[in-house]
């Protein structure tokens, strides 16, 4: 059985003449380069779209046991995440809810395995963005009430807050010197959040970038 991932919720907004698309890996296309100035923008303030990654969600009182039986190592505390050894990540969004992303084999396994009692699927049609660059905190000051630098101190943490009025899930990837904040929001707010974030980024000397430019 094949589970095609849908196109990015902001796919149409990315259709610019200069964009270089990556259509490999049987995944929906993603933008690897937005335009020639990507590296400069990424150094100051870049916003990239990760929404094309495969993704699955489960929740319910039986979710923890069921995922453990599938052989996944799970984050032990709520609002934290773990990388899979073979790529992708699993996040624990509360006591009994999980998000699995970026590892096609894991996602397919979760979608195809018959669910146990007390395990419910969660439809994940998120828009997923990455923020990087030296001026990223200036953007956060304008859009968010929580200082994301607390994530750099504890990189296994997941943060659930709101940005520009939209509920988001945030984690930090990258390293301490060049943190990359990755955020998930409901796909229907994707275009609004993308326009808001790239609009502010452009004012600060950055803008939309392709995935290749991320540190």
């Amino acid at each position: 059985m094949k589970f095609p991932s849908p196109l990015s919720p902001i796919h149409d907004a990315l259709l610019t003449g200069a964009a270089v698309w990556n259509s490999a890996d049987s995944l929906p296309p993603s933008v690897s380069q937005f335009d020639a100035s990507d590296p400069q923008k990424a150094a100051l303030l870049g916003v990239a779209d990760h929404s094309h990654l495969p993704r699955a969600g489960v929740k319910g009182p039986g979710a923890t046991g069921w995922l453990a039986e599938l052989g996944l190592s799970l984050p032990s505390r709520s609002n934290s995440w773990l990388p899979f050894p073979d790529g992708g990540l699993i996040g624990r969004l509360g006591n009994t809810e999980y998000l699995i992303e970026g590892n096609a084999a894991r996602v397919a396994q979760i979608m195809q395995t018959p669910r146990a009692p007390g395990v419910y699927p969660v439809l994940r049609q998120d828009a997923v963005f990455a923020l990087c660059g030296s001026r990223v905190n200036e953007l956060l000051l304008q859009t968010c009430n929580v200082d994301f630098r607390c994530l750099v101190a504890d990189p296994t943490q997941l943060l659930l807050t709101s940005m520009a009025g939209v509920s988001v899930l945030v984690l930090v990837a990258g390293n301490k010197i060049h943190p990359v904040y990755r955020l998930w929001c409901d796909g229907t707010y994707g275009l609004y959040l993308w326009e808001t974030l790239t609009g502010i980024a452009e004012e600060l000397g950055g803008g939309g970038i392709g995935l290749d430019a991320l540190p």
């Binding site: 709520s78 609002n79 009430n145 929580v146 659930l160 807050t161 709101s162």
Partner: peptide
């Protein structure tokens, strides 16, 4: 109780 202090708008 779960996520700590946040602005009331959340």
């Amino acid at each position: 109780p779960f996520n700590g202090p946040r602005p009331v708008s959340e």
